[in-house]
Nucleic acid binder design. Structure first.
Length: 338
DNA sequence: CTAACTACTGAAGTTTATCC
DNA sequence: GGATAAACTTCAGTAGTTAG
């Protein structure tokens, strides 16, 4: 992958040679480092990445770390937080520190074999299970849909469309709220949603999700149509906020709201695992429910937009833990008589 | 596989847009 | 102006995804 270098060659932050500035007073050294720090972080690609790296470097500095660092300091830092932080978080901190050195041209003390070994050791000692969002099974989605349809309010109409499109499209929350009317194609068999490429999508061929029509309890296309009609949305963002008095905003809903909406809807039908749900439950739910319904692995992978098999396998494995179970084939007969 | 990169989570605090 | 539902912002922490 290309380095983020190009962004760093912008007019504002070149040439001021670190070395010459270092001749000034000690406080100036801090200032220079801070400036370099900012430049490096600005060169990072995605906002999220920049934010995460900045946060990591700040954490290291707050601990009393000095930059540029040496290997001993890095190891002390890791050991200090090994008992409290998830090894995954430490790995991110390490990557951030490593990048800091690499991009500023310092020798990199953060990815030496010893440091790597240390992190591996910490992971083995302090590893903990991942906390993953629970999949929303389609039966529960259907209960929610029924409830929302009977509620019939504007908000219920929006939430119904939002959840169904999110679920059957296998969308991330960020993709869900980014959908615009112009991205939707209505075809004889169903709807096609074009996901506009993200900033970092170098190929730039958007992804298209197709969702067929249905005459079952759930029909995402019909729900979407109902929402667009009810809110009289002809262009722009599809999913928007609705004020307490029923006014529909012109801007898109924020990503954070997807979770709240899902939670509220789950509460509505009294699902007992409300707290384990998150917007990711829609994606997981699509994958696991589709698998249980007999969908082909390849199709599930395609609908979810997963590029690698491993992720999908994880979801499916969870769904079929009891079905494809060696012990189960021995036990099944004995359970039946009850 | 690992390292790098990107996005989501959850909680607390804040803002917005009305209605009274 | 105060009250408040609905949504947004922010941030550390951590899960998900991809390049090599």
């Amino acid at each position: 992958m290309a380095t983020p270098e190009p962004a760093d060659n912008g007019a504002e932050n070149n040439d001021a040679h670190p070395a010459s500035a270092l001749h000034s007073a000690v406080t100036a050294v801090d200032a220079v480092l801070a400036a370099q720090h900012r430049a490096v972080l600005a060169a990072a690609t995605a906002d999220n990445t920049r934010r995460a790296y900045r946060s990591a470097v700040n954490h290291y500095l707050a601990w009393g770390g000095v930059l540029p660092a040496d290997e001993a300091a890095i190891i002390r830092y890791l050991l200090t937080y090994a008992p409290t932080l998830n090894p995954r978080t430490l790995a991110l901190r390490l990557t951030a520190l490593s990048q800091w050195h690499v991009h500023l041209g310092f020798p990199n003390p953060a990815s030496t074999p010893t440091v790597r070994k240390t992190l591996t050791g910490i992971a083995r000692t302090h590893g903990r299970p991942k906390k993953r969002a629970k999949a929303l099974p389609i039966e529960d989605l259907e209960r929610i849909v029924v409830q929302l349809v009977s509620a019939g309010t504007l908000k219920a109409t929006r939430d119904n469309a939002l959840l169904q499109i999110g679920f059957f499209g296998g969308l991330r929350r960020s993709e869900l709220v980014a959908i615009e009317v112009g991205h939707i194609g209505w075809t004889p068999e169903g709807i096609e949603i074009m996901l506009p490429r993200s900033k970092t999508d170098q190929l730039g061929e958007g992804i298209i999700k197709a969702i067929p029509y249905s005459d079952g309890p759930c029909c995402p296309a019909a729900a979407l149509r109902a929402w667009l009609d009810a809110a009289d949305i002809m262009a722009g963002p599809v999913f928007r906020s609705i004020s307490k008095w029923g006014t529909v905003a012109s801007a898109a809903l924020g990503v954070g709201s997807v979770n709240t909406i899902l939670e509220d809807c789950a509460t509505l039908v009294k699902l007992d695992y409300v707290l384990d749900l998150s917007s990711h439950s829609l994606r997981r739910g699509m994958a696991t429910s589709a698998h249980r319904a007999g969908a082909d692995f390849r199709d599930i992978k395609k609908q979810g937009g997963w590029r690698h098999d491993g992720t999908v396998h994880g979801y499916i494995e969870e769904a079929s833990r009891f079905e494809d179970n060696a012990a189960g084939s021995l036990l099944r007969k004995r359970v039946k008589p009850a």
